[in-house]
Design a protein around this nucleic acid. Structure first.
Lengths: 193, 193, 193, 193
DNA sequence: GACTAAACGAGACGGTACGTCGCGTCTTTCA
DNA sequence: TGAAAGACGCGACGTACCGTCTCGTTTAGTC
């Protein structure tokens, strides 16, 4: 007994071309100026192929995000045992990256896609925001397991707080100052020297 | 010596009609589906009048926000002397409001306008996000002046942290749970009973 | 010794289904709105089958005409010995038929196919116009053989003249009046009582 | 008391550009391959402008015909007093013209437009076929007034007959032979030397 | 009070992108 | 190997808005 599979199968080549083109155009144009027609042209694909499989601009971006063709350029914090030091290093690295205009533009484009998406919003949230949160959460969690009782709140909650503060800064292109970073660290990792 | 003022003066009636129409359409359609043509039609105004005075969709929305035709339905926290209690009450009230779908839709529309706006972003930021921050900031500041040294961080920073966490929840339509509220309070007003 | 006949033979069922579907759609939609995809769907046939055997919309219509699935609803004139009377009867019968809207629509669809076809035009012409001309020609010819020297022009030429006048009236949906018929008869069969 | 005239008035320049472009493209491409998009591009005009004022391909062609931007390249027969001679000269001239491929193509394109147009058919008929008929009719009529009782049928009817025979030949790209011309003349101007 | 000049409503303009339809080709599986 | 199914790149469809441009019509000063 086999699953019926009639007609020409979906072209993996086209699928990848669309996602790659989308990623490229998000960087170049942002989300608002991204057009289905532009994606189709850049991917060398018919518009119908996009509408057949994704149905909307948001849909394509969601999948490009989910499959990692388009990535919030954020890594996970290191784990040297020193939680505050690790977070500080991570935030300072971020500070540098975010000041680069192309990164900032991409992040804004992604956030724009996120808020515009409406119902698919939570899907995108999971594929984009979650990874950042996860990286932070893992770091906080590792600390919590090594030094139980030291954290002032559950690891996930702290991760969320740091992530939220961070994203809002990035969204509105406000600079990440060293003072701000230290205040944030004081709040979430209070006892540290 | 007076400034020359020749020709027909700007029509206040049209100005108001545009801003009111914009506010109404933001609620009904969201930001992406808002069109200049739609605003003009709804306001009974020529398109040129809009382009003459505002120049872009974002511009109209900015002014509608700034003039309060379109409001993030957020009030300032009360000040009963009990900081934690006041914030808790404020957050619980918010929780109720945000769960109403029309409020949630409006907030998303506004956030969408914010992120999409690009260069005007900071202008909008100031007219929308700032008020929320200001309300919180004032409450934290009042406490700080009454009980210096009790807060773990500068009032403005705490306001920002709470605001950021809050907005991200609203943006992605995640429910505000009571547990989450209490964790947040533990973080920013640690010593409170 | 026989011609090699390898692989699955052409499906007569599909061939007939296509031609029948084409005939039906010509009546319903006319020639311009007739589509290969529509024919394929209506016939329950793959598009490729049509392209394999006919290659174009015009091709299918030609064959449908040639095989009589789609017929200019015109019969040949009777032959009672009285040429003028026979032609008159035939034209009056036509008059009745042509006033029916579905007949008129079909005739227009066919004429549209004819003029649009371009190079294949003469092929279609032969399969459609010729039969009408042939019917007339036969009738004129029979008279000419029975009464040599009575006709004012060669039978084929007279047939052509009558046919042309007729078709132009049908093409532009002008009514066939009795006066017009009699004038035409006076012209081509002058001596008749 | 004045007729209201609100908004920007229709651009005569655009109207003419569209009709001229249409005429040019009809010659180059024929009717079937004529596209609204092509006309708009060639005329340097937005598609919407065409849809606003004409609504369909057929509509534009009708007006181009009616306004003479696109003309069946047929002149009226001369009037030297010799009806048969004049008609013969006219038909021979036609024969020459029609054999030119670009003329033949244009005529086919126009006929194609005519038959495809459906309901507007009679409008087109009047603006295209009628002029030819009128030219012939005038010539027959002049003769009839000069020599009453010589013609075998009313002038208009004779004009129609000649016109119909002619058009059908042109439609199907059949050559106009001298023999055919003389037979036709024998039929409609029988008594002539 | 006539004149001037800017703002107004209306709406047509050249465009861009939309989402759909049909083309003719291709690549599968099934008979 | 023919046929159905159906995805593919492509191009045109007719529509919606964009931002700009006339129009005729207010509605204030200024002469």
């Amino acid at each position: 007994m086999s699953v019926e599979q009639r007609g020409r199968p979906r072209s993996e080549k086209s699928r990848v071309a669309v996602l790659e083109a989308t990623a490229g155009l998000m960087v170049d144009c942002g989300y608002e100026d991204l057009t289905i027609e532009g994606i189709a042209a850049a991917a060398g694909v018919g518009k119908q192929t996009i509408y057949r499989w994704w149905g909307s601009k948001a849909g394509v971006v969601v999948e490009a995000l989910a499959e990692g063709y388009l990535q919030m350029p954020l890594t996970a914090p290191a784990d040297s045992g020193d939680l505050r030091g690790d977070l500080r290093g991570w935030l300072l690295e971020l500070k540098g990256e975010i000041e680069a205009p192309e990164v900032s533009r991409l992040v804004q484009a992604i956030m724009s896609a996120l808020t515009s998406a409406g119902e698919t919003s939570s899907a995108i949230h999971e594929s984009l925001i979650q990874p950042i949160m996860d990286g932070l959460d893992a770091r906080f969690g590792a600390h919590d397991r090594a030094h139980p009782g030291q954290l002032t709140a559950p690891p996930q909650f702290l991760a969320e707080t740091v992530g939220a503060s961070l994203l809002l800064h990035v969204m509105f292109a406000r600079p990440l100052t060293v003072e701000w970073i230290d205040q944030l660290l004081d709040l979430v990792v209070p006892g540290s020297p």
